[in-house]
Amino acid sequence: MSIVINHLTFAYTEGGKRLAPTLKDLTFTIEEGEFLGIIGHTGSGKSTFVQHLNGLLPSEKDTVLVDGHDLSEKAERRRARELVGMVFQYPEYQLFAESVAEDIAFGPKNMKLEEPEIDRRVRHAMELVGLDYERFSKRSPFELSGGERRRTAIAGVLSMEPKYLVLDEPMAGLDPKGRGNILALLEQIRRESGCTVIMISHSMDDIARHATKVLVLEKGEIAMLDTPQNVFSHADKLESLGLSVPNVTKICTEMNKRGISIPTTICTEAALLDWFKGVKHHA
């Protein structure tokens, strides 16, 4: 199963007038089990695109299909929303319930699950995001720290046990440790449930380390869709799109400038250290 995007074009309207399209004729498939990183300049259409993945923005017939469910149809859309979990930017601003547990239970309740199943899911989601059930379940979300609130909001999406997890800049505003925690959480969910992750991020380092495929959007069109290694080896093109490359790629580029021939497809610390170990081995 997969999410099929088929000639998706979208334009916002203002005062009844159709504005220039934000998304232009996107066609590609998000395969199950992938970790798709989405990068692009501000205004490139990233957030608009992901809001199509669970029908928050309207699509035309046969343009967005989640496991075969056509999101242009209301009943199908409802089904797809149970498959696609959506974590928005600064999701902690959307917390509303009186306690952490109630907030996380909101989604499963709407899915009309039985009480014991809801309870199991709340506990499991809290465990995943690293919030101790005994300590946090009864507390008001508003008494928590920023990082804890962010994790509560993410748990509220995980409790629906989505097959596809979409996150729009989930690490924005978190400290380095908080960022590391979220990324480790995503890796764990992928390992345990095979969940497909679709993540918008401005951190090229994080995308290089975690994504299995990278989608580069520019003015609502696909500029690149490839492995992180291949995408990040095009430093000039990315810079012309207002993007950058991971730090490790920059190091490789600088080494090449100084006459050391090192592949620019190396974009993670682990790959770079392997290269150095290889050099040592041959020396």
Partner: peptide
């Protein structure tokens, strides 16, 4: 302090461990 150094510094430190 729960901080991590810049990526380049992490790489620098790892390369030192390799003997550079």
């Amino acid at each position: 302090s729960n901080l991590v150094p810049p990526e380049t510094v992490k790489v620098r430190n790892a390369l030192r461990e390799l003997g550079y």
